[in-house]
Every structure is written in structure tokens, then in C-alpha cells.
Computed example of a mutant assay.
Amino acid sequence: MPRIDGIYTAPAGTLGQPDELIASARYNAFIDDLAADLSAPLPVSVGGTGAFSVANALPSIGGLSIFAIQAMFAGSVFFFARLNPPEGWLICDGRAVSRSQHQMLFSRIGTRWGAGDGITTFNLPNIRGEFIRGADLGRGVDPARQIGSWQGDQNLEHDHDGAAASAGGHYHATVRTALVTNGVLIVANQFTGTVPSYNQTLASSNTGVVGPHTHTVTINMTGTENRPRNVALLACIKT
């Protein structure tokens, strides 16, 4: 740390003339020490990186090693606005990968997303085309779910307005119930034989009964899935 003050004297070995007085005086050494700190790496022990460049500083940032940083994020899923995964990441496409080549990732997720061949491989999460839902963890909104479990689509019970299609103008058949000739009832419900065809009146008529029936109401389908507005990104997991 920079010093506040001190005694300034000529450095040892300074040449001088015989009997020449070399003056000494108090001074503020802050500027000199600050310049020295800026031109030299700050040790890790006091919160620095101990390095002059970013590349050399990475292994000891904040006292953490690259291995510690990788271990911290192994198993994390990030979304990228790019076509290919960054180095050290794998696309979440459900494929089987080597347990020995990805030991850190395997130690984090195990066989939760699939056991692979059961011996040498394990499966990555398959998030392609899926929406993410936070694990319920006892809240009760989405109970009985485990991390990594898949859930199909569903609609909340609700109502739709509907109307039957118009049948257009049409007629219904009638049934003659009584034939009266000159005011005399000739036959009821049915007619047989020969009757003079004058002054005949239909005493009553009703439309034919077709019995209980239904009409079809069609609600048009507007899509093939349920979804909100969305943007597609590349889901990758840190190895």
C-alpha cells in the first residue's frame, strides 16, 4: 500500500563533492508508491490477480482456479443467440455422451436425463422445442414433479360460445288425423274405401314427429399446439 510520508535521503552510493552537504527532508511518498503499484501486479493474497495480462490472470481470479470456475458452472443450462455451442458447452439435444470424457458434468446430473448405455455413457437434457417451467419444490402449483420430468400440454377447463349452422328454409311432413265430409266424420287416423270428393275438410293436422335428435355444432380448430409468443434460442449445458 502507498505510504503517507517518510524521510527522503539521497540513495546510498550517490556521488558528491567533498564536504558537500546533501540535504534531507520529509516528503509524501503516496505518488511514488501508487506508480509502483500500477506498474506491478497486485498479489492474490491481497485480492489481486498477480498477473499483468488477462490470460495470466484467469487462473487466479479472486483466488479461484479455472478448475474451480468450471466446477461451479458444470451442469448449468444457458441459452445462446448463436448457431453453435461455445467451447466447453454441449447442445441440450438428449444425446448420449461419454461419462469419462465429461466426468464433471456426469458428477452433476448423473443419469437423471437418461442412463445412456448404462455403463460408459449418459444422456444430456433434451430441451429442443420445449418451454422451461420452474420446479414446484412443494409449492403446490405443479405438484408431484421431479427435476428433469417431462409434462405434456393441457388446457385449463373453459367454455366456448357456439351456434348450430342454419338449415335454411324447409318444410316438415304433416299427418292427417281426421277426414270430414259434409260435416260428418268419415275416418280418423287413416282412410280406406271410396268417399265422395266434395265438401271435404281437414279437421286437424300436425307436423310429423321425428323423435329425439341432436344437431352438430362445429368449433373450428385454429392451430396444432398451445403456445405463447416466443423466440427460439440455442440451449446448451456446461460440461
Results as ranks from 00 to 15, higher is better:
Leu34Arg: 08
Leu34Gly: 07
Ala35Trp: 08
Ala36Ser: 14
Asp37Glu: 14
Leu38Glu: 05
Leu38Asn: 07
Ser39Arg: 12
Ala40Tyr: 05
Ala40Ile: 03
Pro41Cys: 06
Leu42Gly: 08
Val44Ala: 13
Ser45Glu: 15
Ser45Pro: 03
Val46His: 04
Val46Tyr: 07
Val46Gln: 12
Gly48Asn: 08
Ala51Cys: 08
Ala51Phe: 04
Ala51Lys: 06
Phe52Trp: 13
Phe52Asn: 11
Ser53Trp: 03
Ala55Phe: 04
Asn56Tyr: 05
Asn56Pro: 00
Ala57Glu: 07
Leu58Val: 13
Leu58Glu: 11
Leu58Met: 12
Pro59Met: 05
Pro59Ala: 07
Ser60Gly: 15
Ser60Thr: 15
Ile61Leu: 15
Ile61Val: 15
Ile61Lys: 06
Ile61Ser: 10
Gly63Pro: 04
Leu64Ile: 09
Leu64Gly: 04
Ser65Leu: 03
Ser65Thr: 15
Ile66Phe: 03
Ile66Cys: 10
Ile66Asn: 11
Ile66Met: 13
Phe67Ala: 15
Phe67Pro: 03
Ala68Cys: 04
Ile69His: 11
Gln70Gly: 07
Ala71Tyr: 04
Phe73His: 11
Gly75Gln: 01
Ser76Gln: 09
Phe78Glu: 14
Phe80Trp: 13
Ala81Met: 06
Arg82Asn: 11
Asn84Ile: 13
Glu87Pro: 05
Gly88Met: 02
Trp89Pro: 02
Trp89Leu: 04
Leu90Met: 11
Ile91Asn: 07
Cys92Ile: 06
Asp93Leu: 02
Gly94Val: 04
Gly94Trp: 02
Gly94Leu: 06
Arg95Met: 01
Ala96Met: 00
Val97Ile: 15
Arg99Ser: 01
Arg99Trp: 01
Ser100Val: 14
Ser100Gly: 04
His102Gly: 02
His102Asn: 15
Gln103Thr: 13
Phe106Cys: 01
Arg108Phe: 00
Ile109Glu: 00
Thr111Arg: 03
Arg112Ile: 09
Trp113Gly: 00
Gly114Asn: 04
Gly114Ile: 02
Ala115Lys: 04
Gly116Pro: 01
Asp117Lys: 03
Ile119Lys: 08
Ile119His: 03
Ile119Gln: 10
Asn123Tyr: 00
Asn123Gln: 12
Leu124Glu: 00
Pro125Arg: 00
Asn126Arg: 07
Asn126Gly: 08
Asn126Asp: 15
Ile127Thr: 14
Ile127Met: 15
Arg128Pro: 00
Arg128Leu: 12
Glu130Ala: 15
Ile132Glu: 10
Asp136Gln: 06
Asp136Gly: 07
Gly138Met: 03
Arg139Met: 10
Gly140Glu: 06
Val141Phe: 13
Asp142Arg: 12
Asp142Leu: 14
Asp142Thr: 11
Asp142Phe: 14
Gln146Cys: 04
Gln146Val: 09
Gln146Trp: 02
Gly148Met: 06
Gly148Asn: 08
Gln151Ile: 11
Gly152Phe: 03
Asp153His: 10
Asp153Ser: 13
Asn155Thr: 12
Leu156Phe: 10
Leu156Arg: 12
Leu156Thr: 14
